[in-house]
C-alpha cells in the first residue's frame, strides 16, 4: 500500500499545449467558415466531424489521456461506446429504414 508513491511527472510542454490551442482555434474558424457554405445535409456532418477532432485533441493532450495507462483509455472507449450505441438504438425508432 505504501509502495504506490510513484509520482511520475507526466505532462506536455508549454509549446505542445500552445500548438494544440492554435489547432483548436483554427478548427473553430474552419467550422464557422464551412457553415456559411451550403453543403445540404452534410453540413451538420462536417460540423460534427470537426467537433470530434477538436474533442480528440482536448482529450488526448489537454486531458493527458495520451500519457495515461491503458485503463483510462479503455474507460473512455467504454463510455463513448455506450453513448454511441444509445444514439443508434434510439434512431432505430426514429429513422425510417
Amino acid at each position: 500500500m505504501e509502495g504506490k508513491d510513484k509520482h511520475t511527472i507526466h505532462n506536455h510542454s508549454y509549446t505542445a499545449y500552445i500548438i494544440v490551442w492554435l489547432a483548436l482555434l483554427t478548427f473553430t474558424a474552419i467550422t464557422v467558415a464551412v457553415a456559411g457554405i451550403n453543403f445540404g445535409n452534410s453540413t451538420i456532418a462536417i460540423a460534427l466531424i470537426i467537433a470530434s477532432i477538436k474533442t480528440y485533441l482536448v482529450l488526448t493532450i489537454f486531458m493527458h489521456l495520451k500519457l495515461e495507462n491503458k485503463t483510462f483509455k479503455i474507460f473512455v472507449i467504454i463510455a463513448i461506446f455506450f453513448l454511441v450505441i444509445s444514439f443508434i438504438l434510439l434512431f432505430s425508432d426514429y429513422s425510417n429504414i
Binding site: 455506450f82 438504438l89 432505430s92 425508432d93
Partner: peptide, 22 residues
C-alpha cells in the same frame, strides 16, 4: 442489459425496426 430498454415500449408505437431490434 443496457441495450434493451425499448422492450418496455412495444405497444407505444415505436417503428417496426425498433421493435425488431429491441
Amino acid at each position: 442489459g443496457s441495450l434493451v430498454w425499448g422492450h418496455h415500449m412495444f405497444s407505444s408505437g415505436m417503428s417496426d425496426t425498433a421493435n425488431f431490434v429491441f
